[in-house]
Amino acid sequence: MTDLRRSDRMDETLRAAFAPEVLVIIDDSARHAGHAGAGPAGETHYDVTIVSARFEGMSRVARSRLVHEVLADEFTTGLHALALALRTPDEARRLTAAGAGA
């Protein structure tokens, strides 16, 4: 399974760990091509949104640390930047309601 793309591996790992209502993984590596940390093969910069009940009662820092921990193997194999939006289902619904005016 090691020849899976990183985004596919992350998708599997995050689904198993968080049973997310929403999981969006965007590979943002191309936009960072040429930076330090951006390897020639890409797969270094990601933008991840997770909506999961597992985040209930957790601070922002604690949520991110949990995701970092779950993805520790990816960080040791070249994952360089991970932008995270981590919400509980309640928070996600409130944000959607707020954005759905008009």
Partner: peptide, 18 residues
């Protein structure tokens, strides 16, 4: 915390960019 930047306020870790 595996990424940079990192912000501290009064010795307390606040977080990274997000």
């Amino acid at each position: 915390w595996p990424t940079i930047p990192q912000l501290y306020v009064k010795g307390e870790f606040v977080g990274g960019c997000d």
